[in-house]
Design a protein around this nucleic acid. Structure first.
Lengths: 123, 123
DNA sequence: GAGGTTGCTCTACAAATGTAGAAAATTAAA
DNA sequence: TTTAATTTTCTACATTTGTAGAGCAACCTC
């Protein structure tokens, strides 16, 4: 099952913190903070969906992600590519570089990454 | 407002066809086809959300997208980048190349694209 | 040890989503 | 022209999402 939008936002915070108590998570939200019960509900649903677990640490729980950000994100992107780009990563990459307006520096950086990848692949 | 998942799928077909009658759209779906009323409902909602319009063409309507795929997709990706990569395209690109397991050929292709972009930028 | 604070579960409820039947209107087909 | 298929609107209903109060248990504080 998929995370909903709000759940995803919460997950982001959890990925950043790696481990967190309710209060830590609550703190992460910008000012008109959601009610603590809202966060609690979300965490519960996320547990049911298998994205989050916790360690009972004294009185309360220290939550942590069960799914790595890279995994989650990777499958997300693959989904997009499949849906919009006929499953062609290169087609996507092409679109991406053209459309997202990378700076010269970013482009250089990206090329370096790719070169490294190519090298890695060759060995 | 955003398209929901099913709406997005339908939109995909519409982008592919460019213009389409109900029946054309219905045909696009793999076998356990949704009921025609389902498609109709979706189209209606998509019109309300401003993603689709139509020309009354004789008895029925020829639907067409109001939003270009590249625009829709671009803002989608930008959203992801913002949410997951701290708004850094390069960070995203790096992740992308590392994680999506491009083939050697795709990597070469991608590098060519980037080189071209760099060139374009320099001029 | 009485009262506030925190974190949790349970319950609730409005809005959005996924799905489609009923019915009307139109048209194609026999 | 009677019948059958097509397209649309309306209505409906279960599920999921966003949001949070009520209430309870555990703790902290004086």
């Amino acid at each position: 099952m998929q995370l909903s939008n709000t759940e995803e936002e919460l997950m982001e915070h959890l990925w950043n913190l790696e481990k967190a108590y309710m209060s830590d998570l609550l703190e992460q939200f910008p000012d008109p903070r959601p009610a603590p019960t809202t966060i609690a509900t979300l965490l519960k649903r996320m547990q049911e969906k298998g994205f989050v677990s916790y360690n009972q640490h004294g009185r309360s729980r220290q939550y942590f992600p069960l799914v790595a950000k890279t995994d989650y994100f990777g499958s997300h992107v693959r989904g997009l590519i499949k849906k919009f780009f006929n499953n062609s990563s290169a087609q996507f990459a092409s679109f991406f570089t053209k459309e997202t307006d990378l700076s010269a520096k970013e482009l250089e950086e990206l090329r370096a990454i790719i070169d490294k990848e190519i090298e890695r692949k060759e060995s």
